[in-house]
Each structure stands twice: as structure tokens, then as C-alpha cells.
Simulated assay, not measured.
Amino acid sequence: MGRNIFNQPPKNADQPAAPSPAPVKSTKLPGSVGGLRDSLREITANSIRDIEPDRIDMDGLRDRLILEDESIDELAESILKHGQQVPIMVRPSDQPDRYRIVYGRRRLAAIRKTGGTVKAIVRTLDDDASLIAQGQENNLRLDPSFIEKSLFIKEMQEAGYKPGVIQDALGLTRQGVSNHRVVIEQLPEELVRLIGPAHGVGRRQWSNLATLSSKVPVFDIARETLNGLPEATSSADKFQAVYAACSSKTRRASNMSGGRKTTAVKDESGRPVGHLSVDGKSIAIKIIRKDNPEFGNWLEERAESTLRQLFEQWQDERGSGS
């Protein structure tokens, strides 16, 4: 019965017999094996591997201002004690048996200090996907400071990444990206790297410092200020010290050259004659007609000639002769 079911003769004797199973199997096998091989490669590509740290290149855009600092030593000590709890992510390099870091730069730096292999997820990603993975993972694990995000945005834009990719990488809206970019474009990059990440210092404070940068040499002031601080001063405290020094310098400069001083000029009897206003850019004589209308009319007729006479008198007193 079973044989009759599986070995039915052709219904039409003139019709050629159906192909035997063997050729069908032989034609489909390579494709099936190839698909299985691809699946295994994908599983392997997404698995966690132990990789020698010197086979991983620290390329790509940096999203941290400080990498080699005491926090790396603390992380290395924790890994020695508890092991590496969270894998990093890498992607294959163009060079054989080498990888490029996607995220986990601090963990990789710590393991390079402790020795041994690093646990890594290997993913085949293009540049856009790699950047998005880097930004999102860092936002989840240790939120970058405002100024670190600003520098990261600047580097992404200079590298030619599209606005949508930048927004996805940091989880920001278009306006949020713009807010960061406006600040970083006004500040010298050397100043930012001198201060550091300044966690806890937000957009408003950095914006205020950016405004001061158009009035005083903020980098020179920062360098002088930070040279006088203890070595262990935190980055946030460095920012506050620099901001205070720049604000003070701006006020002094304003008082010396930009502050307007107005003096009321009166005659011997105390009646108002006019007002003299002086600042760093101009000297102005103001006559209020309602206080002394006749004098105002008289001065209006003679203002140009009087000003020329005063100028000639000044030249004579300087001894210029012309």
C-alpha cells in the first residue's frame, strides 16, 4: 500500500516520467548549504567573541573629551575584580583579522591596561549604522555632556554625515542639533578641550560663555585661570572658574572703554546748559531745546565752525602745525 502511494505510474503513457528526486536534490543542495552557511555567518557575526585588544583599531569619531583619565583606572580595577560585564561592539576592518571600534572605547582602554582579551560583539555595519549605534549606546550608558555632544555634532557634520543620521545618533530633534551647533561654532575648540566635558553644565551656561568670547580673549583667560587651579579640579569647576574670570574681565573692559558716562553741564547759577556723554566709542554734546531754546538755536548755527576751531586749537596745542 505504501509503495503504491509513493510510486504512482504516470497517468499518460506518452507523458515522460517525472524527474527522479536525485537530480532535484543535487541542484538545490548548493543553494541550501549556501543559505545555511550565510545564516551561520550571521549568527557568528552577532555573537560575543574574545578578541585581542591590539586587533581593534580606535578609529571613527570620538564622542568623549576625556578618555585617558582616572576613570579609566577605576574601570580597569573594576574589570579586574568582577570581569568585563558588558561587551563592546566592533565591526570588521578592511584589513584581515582586524576590527574597528563602534562603541565601548573606555572599556577597551581599560582592558588594554589590565591585559587579556576583550569581549566584543562583531557586527557588519556601514558608517551610518555604526555612528547611530555608537551615539545611542553612549546615550544609554553614560549620557555625554552638552559640550561633548556639541563637539560630536561638529565632527559628524565635518565628516559629511546627513542631518537625519546625526539626529538619530544622539536622539535629538533638528532644533536640538541646531542649539548645540550654534554654541560650538562660537567657541574655540582649544578652549573646550582645555575645560573638558563639564558634566552638569548646560546649554545656557555654555551659551553665556560663547557670548563673552566675542568681547574678551576667552582662551587666554582660561589658560591663565586654569594654571592657578589645583590639578584635581573637576571639569565642571574649571568651567565655573573660567566663566567667572571671563565675566570679570568683560566688566572691567566695559568700565574702561565701553561704559557710557553722562554729565549734566550747568552755568554759574546752576541752570542746565546741556549734557556731555562719553564712552569708549564717542563723545556727544546734547542740548535740550526746552531747557535753553535760544542757546540751542545759536549753537546750531555755529556748531560746525566751532567744532573746526576746537580741532585746530587741538592741533596747535599738539604742535602739529597743520
Results as ranks from 00 to 15, higher is better:
residue 242 V to A: 00
residue 244 A to M: 12
residue 204 R to L: 11
residue 252 R to Q: 12
residue 250 T to K: 13
residue 261 K to S: 07
residue 233 T to K: 07
residue 235 S to K: 10
residue 201 V to S: 05
residue 226 L to G: 04
residue 233 T to L: 05
residue 230 P to G: 12
residue 225 T to H: 08
residue 251 R to K: 15
residue 237 D to N: 15
residue 197 P to S: 10
residue 236 A to L: 06
residue 259 G to Q: 11
residue 198 A to R: 03
residue 248 S to L: 09
residue 258 G to F: 02
residue 263 T to A: 01
residue 241 A to N: 10
residue 241 A to Q: 11
residue 249 K to M: 12
residue 225 T to R: 09
residue 243 Y to C: 05
residue 247 S to I: 02
residue 234 S to E: 08
residue 227 N to F: 09
residue 231 E to A: 13
residue 223 R to A: 08
residue 250 T to L: 02
residue 199 H to Q: 11
residue 238 K to H: 06
residue 255 N to R: 11
residue 245 A to I: 05
residue 252 R to K: 12
residue 228 G to H: 11
residue 193 R to N: 11
residue 194 L to F: 09
residue 237 D to K: 15
residue 249 K to A: 15
residue 262 T to M: 01
residue 246 C to F: 03
residue 216 V to Y: 06
residue 228 G to W: 04
residue 255 N to Q: 08
residue 262 T to P: 03
residue 222 A to H: 10
residue 203 R to D: 02
residue 211 T to G: 09
residue 254 S to G: 14
residue 257 S to P: 00
residue 199 H to D: 07
residue 199 H to M: 07
residue 199 H to V: 09
residue 222 A to W: 03
residue 242 V to Q: 01
residue 219 F to E: 12
residue 209 L to D: 00
residue 197 P to I: 06
residue 241 A to F: 04
residue 207 S to V: 02
residue 194 L to P: 06
residue 239 F to R: 03
residue 225 T to D: 04
residue 214 S to Y: 05
residue 204 R to E: 12
residue 251 R to I: 09
residue 234 S to C: 11
residue 235 S to C: 10
residue 215 K to T: 02
residue 247 S to C: 08
residue 245 A to C: 09
residue 226 L to R: 12
residue 261 K to G: 00
residue 243 Y to H: 14
residue 220 D to P: 07
residue 240 Q to A: 15
residue 213 S to Y: 00
residue 215 K to A: 03
residue 257 S to V: 09
residue 217 P to M: 04
residue 210 A to N: 02
residue 251 R to Q: 10
residue 196 G to A: 05
residue 198 A to C: 12
residue 261 K to P: 07
residue 260 R to G: 03
residue 247 S to V: 07
residue 223 R to P: 05
residue 221 I to P: 00
residue 260 R to I: 08
residue 222 A to Y: 03
residue 250 T to F: 06
residue 229 L to Y: 08
residue 219 F to D: 13
residue 257 S to I: 11
residue 263 T to C: 03
residue 251 R to C: 01
residue 252 R to V: 10
residue 201 V to C: 07
residue 196 G to Y: 01
residue 228 G to M: 06
residue 201 V to F: 02
residue 210 A to F: 02
residue 205 Q to C: 03
